[in-house]
Design a protein around this nucleic acid. Sequence first.
RNA 1: GCUCACAUAGCUCAGACGGUAGAGCACAUCCUUGGUAAGGAUGAGGUCAUCGGUUCAAAUCCGAUUGUGAGCUCCA
Length: 638
Amino acid sequence: MSTLQIELPDGSTKAVAEDATAYDVALSIGEGLARQSIAARFEGRLVDINAALEESGKLELITQNSPEALEIIRHSCAHLMAQAVKEIYGEDVQVTIGPAIENGFYYDFYSDSKKFSPDDFEAIEKKMTELAKADLPIVRGEMSRADAIEMFREMGEAYKVELIEDLGEETVSVYRQGDFVDLCRGPHLPRTGLLKSFKLTSVAGAYWRGDEKNAMLQRLYATAFQNNKDLKSYLHKLEEARKRDHRKLGRELDLFSFSEEAGAGLVIWHPKGALLRTLIEDFERKEHLRRGYDIVMGPQILKTELWKTSGHYDNYRENMYFTEVDEQSYGIKPMNCLAHMLIYKSKIRSYRDLPQRYFELGTVHRHEKSGVLHGLLRVRGFTQDDAHILCRPDQIDAEVKGVMEFVQDVAGIFGFEYCMELSTRPEKSIGSDADWEQATNALHSALTDSGHAFEINEGDGAFYGPKIDVKLKDALDREWQCATIQCDFTLPERFDLTYVGADGEKHRPVMLHRVILGSIERFVGVLIEHYAGSFPLWISPVQVTVLNVTDNQAEYAQEVYRQLRAAGIRTEIDLRNEKLGYKIREAQVGKIPYMLVIGDREMEETKVTPRFRDGKNLDAMTVLDFISFIEDEVKQYK
RNA sequence: GCUCACAUAGCUCAGACGGUAGAGCACAUCCUUGGUAAGGAUGAGGUCAUCGGUUCAAAUCCGAUUGUGAGCUCCA
């Protein structure tokens, strides 16, 4: 009998029998390793631990603790959940697909009689535990396409039949555990007994194959981990995220609200929220001026004819609001570019004038589908920190780089990591092939030169041009789309924008649309969750609150308050007839950075004792010292 | 927009079977002047989201609308 030469990650080589599996190799190294191994990577592809290797090659064992293990565990757990559901509900439910996803897995079921609800979770989990305890072997099998179609048809699994029919492969693999069979590429765990830590999390509708024209399925979301500790810590993290929910904090901190009377997706900014966004907007104006942008402003409504010129009427009409006055139709702006076009066109431009950088904190309205609205993160009226850069083709690269530097600086100030994506031409789009190619190449090279890692999303661009999206990562590692840079060769053409070149001839400028924070609304929502409501001093709507211990110090406390206000520090005062502990608690719950406790001691020394919201006290200092301390922190964006 | 669920006081929530509502916090008044996360008493607050239907009777059952949530699809 011949032997196989198996190369291990440490470089050593094992000779094993011809019919050996990855498990056999693991066993030859050690029993403990064999017990721990759940799958393997052979010649770069993932295989079952019990699959015969059949040839010589490089083998890497995947143990329960390997990073790749989690995906396999979750995928197998999806099968376990499907098996449990089939055992409980039988023919009433058809299986479809069930992949592992970022934080767990899901399985989509079709049923016209059974409606899943969270009340069913316990029974399903119980059945899953039972099936896991039975420690059923999970066995891979291969069968011909025709046989597989026949088998699933007999089982009444129409969706599986459709999947195989579309698969276009002559042989398909199926996995069996007990009486349950599922079409699957694998790999899977060798036994159900390895699944111990799982939990169903939610149920929701999902379209078959993600297409809204198809049947609505019921998706059961769940998660699984290597051990209970990881499961618990994940559930704890979910709980943390819930506590940070900007909708909850927005109400508690009295930042904003929504009103059924005003309309869905329209933010009502309360004093503290309006102040917060104003501080961010002031920061933006300053930063834009510093970086060579000009501040401009356009109207909220522009004639519908102009939206036809720009192409928005043809491509974006279903998202726009319209209004008619004196038999003249106007479109409420969903984007800010039109007025900026008109500014450019207002006089003859020389190549020496370029780039022109027009910046506007522009409020736009878009009729988003009702189902997508979500707190501040997805609204119908919002303000973009929008700019349009009109430049010569040879300036694109430098301009895109300038924007990327801007993003980097701002992300740093707010403490975000970020990643970037390049999106290319979608199906519904305007502009010539040559324009798209040139624009896409320009963005691609700027990204490459930046040294930043990026991904490419084919067909995900805007209808008028390709784009770079920046995704911020917040304190809980969640990603948020904020900044975007979009290249546009189309609008300058539609508006016939030109500049006079060195040769005295007319040339077409290129346009970059870009936002740094994206929408102020969304950014504030992200900030609330990122900071869990404890904003840094420089953007805290209230920076300091003055608390007197008894009425005795009321007058001195008011004097301190006046001095702080006069110095431009956002200060409140709480002179109410309450105990100090009560006032401190309220300020603490309000997440105010500094409290100044004024008692007899402070009054006698004409000082203040600052208490930071983390509970630490600073030494007593004079009001003037405290003011310069605050000013210094603000300068450092603390 | 679609699927499912939900809508009771400013907030968080109770209100089996249909018989017109209750708690805690917040708010107001009074007592208390208390040094680092909730002092006490009293009081005021709700056409039970809106409209329509069933019923002797609807917060409760049915329908529509509006809004909200979890997803899907789409997006800053």
